[in-house]
Design a protein around this nucleic acid. Sequence first.
DNA 1: CTATTGACGATTGTCGACTATCTTTCTATC
DNA 2: GATAGAAAGATAGTCGACAATCGTCAATAG
Lengths: 237, 237
Amino acid sequence: MASLTSLKTQERLLDRQAANSIRQQIVNRTMPPGHRLLEAVLASELEVSRGTIRSALMQLSNEGLVRQVAFTKWEVAPASISEAWELYTLRAALEGLAASLAAEYASDAERETLMTVFRELEAAAKAGQREAAADADFKLHKTMVTMSGHKRLIREHERIILQVRFQMTHIGFAPRDTKDLIADHRLLTEAVVNGDAERAEQLARSHNDAEVKRLLAANARQADGVPHQHKREKDNG
Amino acid sequence: MASLTSLKTQERLLDRQAANSIRQQIVNRTMPPGHRLLEAVLASELEVSRGTIRSALMQLSNEGLVRQVAFTKWEVAPASISEAWELYTLRAALEGLAASLAAEYASDAERETLMTVFRELEAAAKAGQREAAADADFKLHKTMVTMSGHKRLIREHERIILQVRFQMTHIGFAPRDTKDLIADHRLLTEAVVNGDAERAEQLARSHNDAEVKRLLAANARQADGVPHQHKREKDNG
DNA sequence: CTATTGACGATTGTCGACTATCTTTCTATC
DNA sequence: GATAGAAAGATAGTCGACAATCGTCAATAG
């Protein structure tokens, strides 16, 4: 008999489906950064009411893909080096924690899964399949984070990765050279599989920090936005 | 002249205000974990429509204070040691990053502010004012995170802290002994103020990790929920 | 007496209409 | 011609009513 899966899921709700649909358009580059989102237009396109769209846009706003200007407009979030900088630094911290927890607590079956996913990445990279390699890369990280068994961490990581992909495609930040990439991931995978929490954490962090460095280098070149700025407004007396 | 602040803020929106109001009730312990939230009741109490309440509940759900069971009910999030464990581990990772960034990038004025806040904590703790000390404690951490200039980090940290306070009051997890607390914070503050990023990060992390250890000890005692469990459902063939 | 089915009441989900706010455009005044 | 103010158009915000779904409990069959 086919084992069934619960239908009592949030995904049944119309606003979730609407959010999924719009999210897809955003990460697909169909809707670029800054693109204006009109509630009425989306409502008629997706054939739901404006209230439903509103709810969907709020979700996307929470995910960092959409921005709201109260009483005025919704638009696709901006893409810039400084946004990407935030995402990579956060990602380094989160994946560091995840790697440590995964190394410490994951089951044997999970460790094997991780190894398998790494081999997929390796195969794709060696075959020169850039897209497949990129997907396998994300999958590897996601697998590791899932292995942490930390619900909030998993959820937050998923959001960050979504934004990373969005920013990457728009600021033209490509993955590194294939060799480094495989080497990095091999070490990380081994550390997690072998249960070396400290080393796994260190590797996960340095792996992402390397990306931050590349990003800052790119930033210096194109002099876009400075990644770190203190433009906080002063309190009033 | 009094310097004015933009009125074009999200806070004007009714759903935000409703969320604020309900959030208050939750962290106040007026609404305990598991407490059922009826849209209609909240709507009549706050004198807004059910749609507005719905939007507010979704925000709180994103903040981790409320849970939704689709088509069925809303309720206040559960409190348990395993939830607290998630929060403290995440907090350690986030504040580690924040401490590092603050040490590296903060302005002189900000460093002085941090020092001032630390002195407030010290004074309150020495005077034995537990509540004031706890508030000053949170304020110190918040200040440090703000100094990082990392918008996403600041936002996420705020959410985590909110949940920490909620969980703390319900699982009866009190702050440590005053002396350790002051010593920890003095070292951390100094590291940040002196721009020693590596040490600041290390201290921020170990400070929170110590709480995790205390939590696990408490857990062993009351044998509540194991903080880490892999109760993931297997995929179907 | 127990288990299954169907009906009912309670609650959440969705919608279309109305209201409030913002931005733009037009007009009058200097 | 430039500027300030008023009117108009566009868009987001809020609401009340209706639809869909859920959990409960009674009725029925075995």
